[in-house]
Amino acid sequence: MDKKQAIIAFGALSQESRLDVFRRLVQAGNQGMLSGEIATALGQKQNTASVNLSILLRAGLIRNERDGRTVRYFADFQGVGGLLGYLMEDCCGGQADQCRPLIDQVMTGRGC
C-alpha cells in the first residue's frame, strides 16, 4: 500500500458509522454479511449502509461477493494487512528486521 491509498483507507474509517460497519464485518469473519443484515444490526437506513459499504469497498478495506440475487460483504483482511504493513514498514527505529515477523504476519492478511 502506498501513502495515497493509506490516506483513503483512514478517511474511510474516520466516520463513525463506517467504522461501525467495518468492525461489524471484522466480527462476522469469513461468513460476511448481507447489506441488509448490516443495516439492521447497526440501526442504519439501507441507503446509508450502502453508501458506507461503497466507500469502504473503494478504500480496499472490504470486499464483496455475489450471493444469488444479493451481495455479501466481508472485511478484506489483505487490504487491512496492507494498511498495517504500511504503518509498520519503518518501525523499530529503522531496524525493520526486528519487526519483520509481525509485519509478515500482518501482510499475509490472515482473517478468521
Rank of each mutant, 00 (worst) to 15 (best):
L34D: 05
Q31T: 10
L84Y: 09
S35A: 15
I55W: 02
E16Y: 10
L57H: 09
G60L: 04
Q44R: 12
R18S: 00
I7E: 14
A75R: 00
Q27Y: 05
D67W: 07
G32R: 02
G109C: 05
L83F: 10
N30T: 13
Q5N: 09
Q98W: 11
K4H: 14
D2H: 13
L19M: 11
G43I: 02
L57V: 03
I38R: 02
Q31D: 14
M107Y: 07
F22I: 01
L87I: 11
C112N: 13
G81S: 06
D90Y: 11
V80N: 01
I7C: 06
S35G: 15
F22P: 00
M107C: 15
L19I: 06
G94P: 02
Q27E: 15
D76V: 07
L56Y: 01
R66G: 08
L57N: 11
D104R: 14
C99R: 06
T40L: 11
R24K: 13
A12H: 03
A12N: 05
K3Y: 14
K3S: 12
G111P: 00
A49F: 01
R66Q: 14
A12E: 05
K3H: 15
E16Q: 12
C99G: 10
A75C: 03
D104I: 08
G81R: 01
L34V: 06
L42R: 01
R58D: 12
G94K: 03
M107F: 04
G85N: 07
L102I: 14
K3W: 11
G43M: 02
D104P: 05
R69P: 08
Q95P: 04
F74V: 00
L102H: 08
L42D: 02
N64G: 11
V71A: 07
A6M: 13
V106I: 14
Q78H: 12
M88D: 12
L25Q: 00
I7F: 13
Q98H: 10
Q105N: 12
D2I: 10
Q98V: 13
L53I: 05
Q15A: 14
A41V: 00
L53M: 04
F10D: 10
M107S: 15
L34M: 10
Q27T: 10
D67I: 05
